[in-house]
Amino acid sequence: MSSLAPQRREPGELFGPRFTLFADMLAVGLAATVASVPLITAPTAFAASCAVLRRSIREDRPVTMGEYVGEFRAPGLRRVLLAGVAVFAAVTLVVLDLALAGAGLPGARPMSWALIAVAVAGLVVALRAAADPEVARGWRPALNRAATRSAADPMGCALIVTAAGLCVAFVWMLPLLALLLPGPLAFAITAVELRSEPAHDGGDDAGVGSGG
């Protein structure tokens, strides 16, 4: 990828392009938090973060808020609502199952661990689907592709679990970081996805983005 190649700092430039990417990552995280205020829009807000950061990495250029808004609106209201409802239904189901498993029923402990394992696997697939470049066209095919990638790339799954765990730890230590962490998490997942993709010119990505 072009962004991974050595880059020289321009005369008078204090931080260089890496700092620009870091600042964009935090700005995108804050934008995703604001876009997630209705809660039901959270999956689409996170997917939009992955999309703009992917394009920024591939094309080696700054992110704009107009670009983020465009990615957020790309799926259309119906897909935004369906994604939000599906995510919250899944979370509610897992929480209820864990509550039932912890109610002192026989076999509750192994059932709880099994539910946690299923929840973690579902989270990994959902996060990888959010980073899919075609997720705006539909979450179901994106989830299918994410499940296939997850089965073929257990190391990537481990990296995503680690990134999500670190985000939880950061929020536990300093809750205010929750406002910015969607950006670093989206960046981490996008980096995991890009490591297995062939590098190509940014112009192709630009054409795809403008078409969406």
Rank of each mutant, 00 (worst) to 15 (best):
V34A: 13
V192F: 13
T20V: 09
V135D: 03
G183D: 02
W113G: 02
L176E: 04
M173P: 00
R58P: 06
A117K: 01
A206S: 12
V94M: 06
A117M: 03
L185R: 08
R109I: 14
N144I: 02
A121H: 14
P182R: 01
A31D: 04
R9Y: 04
G12K: 03
G203P: 02
A206I: 05
P198V: 00
R9N: 06
A27W: 10
V52R: 02
L96S: 12
V124W: 05
P184S: 06
V52P: 03
G212F: 07
A129G: 02
A136N: 02
L181G: 09
L179D: 00
A164Y: 04
L53Q: 06
T162P: 00
A178W: 08
R128H: 01
R61S: 01
E197F: 00
L21G: 00
A146C: 08
R195F: 07
A45D: 13
I40V: 15
A83I: 07
G203H: 12
T92A: 15
G70T: 14
S196E: 05
L123C: 14
D132P: 09
E197S: 08
F170T: 02
W172Y: 06
D205V: 12
T148K: 10
D201E: 13
A114G: 07
A103P: 11
P141T: 00
L177M: 11
G29D: 06
I116V: 14
V161A: 05
G165R: 00
A42K: 12
D204Q: 08
R145P: 09
G104P: 07
R79I: 05
A136G: 08
Q7I: 01
R58Q: 10
A90P: 06
G84D: 08
T148S: 13
G70Y: 12
D24C: 02
V52H: 01
A130V: 00
M65D: 02
V63S: 04
V120I: 14
R195E: 07
E71W: 15
A31S: 11
A42F: 15
V34E: 08
L98Y: 05
G29F: 11
L115C: 05
P184Y: 09
G207P: 00
F187M: 15
P75L: 03
S150L: 11
A101K: 06
R9G: 04
T20M: 01
G12C: 04
E193A: 14
A126D: 03
V80P: 04
V52D: 01
E134T: 11
L105H: 03
G107Q: 09
A188I: 14
A83D: 15
A126M: 06
S2T: 14
V95E: 08
L4A: 12
A158W: 11
G107W: 10
W172F: 05
C157R: 03
A31V: 05
G211K: 01
P182S: 02
A32S: 15
A51S: 12
L26C: 09
